[in-house]
Design a protein around this nucleic acid. Structure first.
Lengths: 209, 209
DNA sequence: AGTAAATTTGACCAAATGGTTAAACCAAAT
DNA sequence: ATTTGGTTTAACCATTTGGTCAAATTTACT
């Protein structure tokens, strides 16, 4: 049998995702991953030789869920800036809703060891090849010249858009605790109206009146 | 001698801050903290009995650096909304510049175990007693009625303001890696112009033209 | 059925890790 | 000088943890 161990391999990967994304590389225990996958611990090392190799896989997958999304959206040339922003915020917050633990996981592991990115970049050149900012920058200048939006720096804008989407997810425990009396339900409502709020907020910030 | 072991105690706490804030509770090693403090490992346990107790101390300190700042600024009643925002962004980003690792640390540890907040709240009632949002909300409504700003939800606004300040610090490795070709210097420049950019961005977003 | 290869497991190991203890040290009070 | 109390250390301990290995089991092929 050469490639049909898929079942076990996926069970392991799923378990690893859950444990690593909740507890981080250093907090995760191989035993817990094995238990959650319903297998022997030695089998983990049979498929992914070391903890680091398994982690690397999980990290790359988590990373690749989020970053390409940004590229795809920014690159869709047929949309106006406003449309792109609305489209992006909608899609990105939906995505975040489905994978709420990934952003914190990625951010945290990168702070612990920024070197991980090097490996990811090497395996996935598309990330580096992102001259998409040039294109987006041109579009921003263009619409600014036409008097649709104020002149604005592309990187600052991108940072704001992504940040406004991610921050309430990543900082959920703090915000929910301090501003919402730790009421999970209220915070869920808060999050569900954010798509609209964030979109309007950003568009108001950059549009010319 | 009852209270003049200050020297050793502070050396330990400083070392603990550094290690915990960089590696998190699970990644930190008592031995490393001891080494960094230039003392024996047993001495760590003499002053702070367990790793958890030491961590708790570090976490509370980190937390208290950031949250009260928000309160102080929002509560200063003599300022207009615009002034408050400018004042806050200025001060908060300066603060973040001095302690770039704290936000990621706090966010990460709270995701790992949201229960920590309960302990912090109990010891520091001021955080809970934050009805400052009511006051700020009133001010927002007031200025909206006067036609200075658009009607806007206080919690959404607060989230955005804080998020726009914190996100570029917390997500530095990603943003710097993807948008700035990993050039530290360029990213530092980027950060240093953010105060102005963020302030204008927010004010444009909420002001009535 | 028989065999070879891949898969799975229980038992085990060495290193790391948080924590303890008894003794040494040291400054101040008697 | 001696005692007393807090401080510091070296050595040690129990447990956890990532990882290994040889044997057992299953699967695929002849």
């Amino acid at each position: 049998m050469i490639e049909e161990a898929k079942d076990t391999e996926t069970k392991i990967l799923d378990a690893a995702k859950e444990v690593f994304q909740h507890k981080g590389l250093t907090g995760a225990r191989m035993q817990e991953i094995a238990d959650k996958a319903g297998i022997n611990k030695a089998l983990l090392h049979y498929y992914y030789r070391t903890k680091d190799k398994l982690f690397e896989k999980v990290f790359e997958l988590a990373f690749s869920v989020f970053i390409p999304k940004i590229r795809d959206i920014v690159l869709s040339t047929d949309k106006s800036v406003f449309e792109k922003i609305e489209f992006f915020v909608d899609n990105y917050i939906s995505l975040l809703h489905k994978h709420p633990y990934i952003p914190g996981f990625v951010i945290n592991e990168l702070n612990r060891n920024p070197q991980i990115l090097v490996g990811v970049f090497e395996k996935n050149i598309q990330f580096k090849e992102m001259n998409l900012f040039e294109k987006f920058e041109i579009q921003l200048k263009d619409e600014a010249n036409k008097g649709i939006i104020r002149p604005i720096d592309a990187r600052n804008l991108m940072t704001n858009v992504v940040g406004l989407c991610i921050f309430p997810i990543v900082a959920r425990p703090i915000i929910q605790g301090i501003m919402f009396n730790n009421e999970k339900k209220e915070y869920d409502e808060f999050l569900s109206q954010r798509k609209k709020f964030v979109t309007e907020f950003i568009i108001n910030a950059i549009k010319v009146n």
